[in-house]
Amino acid sequence: MNKRYAMVVDLRKCIGCHACSVACKSEFDVPLGYWRAWVKTEEKGRYPHVRVSFLPRLCNHCDNPPCTFVCPVKATYKRPDGIVVVDESLCIGCKACIMACPYEARFSHPSKHVANKCDFCYHRVDKGMVPSCVNTCVGRNRIFGDLNDPNSEVRKLLDTQEVQVLKPEMGTSPQVYYIIPDKDTLIPTYKYHNDIERRAFNASNDHL
Rank of each mutant, 00 (worst) to 15 (best):
I187M: 07
T160V: 07
Y190F: 15
D184C: 10
Q175I: 00
T189R: 10
T172P: 00
K191C: 05
N194S: 04
P181C: 10
A203R: 02
T189L: 07
D182N: 15
Q175Y: 03
E197P: 03
Q175R: 15
S173M: 11
I180H: 15
D195M: 12
P174D: 05
T189I: 06
Q164I: 01
A203M: 06
L186G: 14
Y192A: 11
E162L: 03
E197D: 14
P174F: 00
K191F: 09
H193V: 03
T189S: 09
Y177C: 03
P168F: 05
Y178F: 15
Q161T: 04
I187D: 12
E162T: 11
P168T: 07
L166N: 04
Q175K: 14
T189C: 05
K191I: 08
E162A: 04
P174W: 00
F201M: 05
D184Q: 14
Y178D: 09
P181V: 11
V165T: 15
M170K: 12
P181S: 11
I196R: 07
T160W: 04
P188Y: 10
K167L: 14
V176C: 00
Y190R: 11
V165W: 01
Y177F: 15
N194F: 02
M170V: 05
E162K: 10
K191A: 08
N202R: 10
G171E: 07
T189A: 08
M170F: 06
V176W: 01
R198C: 04
P181M: 11
Y178M: 10
Q164T: 07
Q164R: 13
Y192V: 00
N194A: 07
P168N: 09
L166H: 02
Y192P: 00
Y190A: 08
Q161C: 14
Y190Q: 10
S173W: 06
E162I: 04
T185Y: 01
E169M: 09
M170D: 07
K183P: 03
T160M: 07
I180A: 13
Q175E: 13
G171N: 07
Y190C: 06
E162D: 12
R199S: 08
Q175S: 13
I180E: 13
T172G: 00
N202I: 03
M170E: 14
P181R: 06
P188E: 15
Q175V: 00
V165Q: 00
P188A: 15
Q161N: 11
Y178H: 08
Y178N: 11
D184W: 02
I187G: 03
S173H: 12
P174K: 01
D195I: 12
Q164H: 09
A200R: 00
E169Y: 14
N202M: 08
A200Y: 02
T160D: 11
P168H: 11
K183H: 06
D195N: 09
P174Y: 01
S173T: 09
D184I: 10
S173P: 00
D184T: 12
Q175H: 13
Y192S: 05
D195W: 05
N202H: 10
A203D: 10
D195R: 07
A203C: 02
I187Y: 04
T172R: 00
A203T: 08
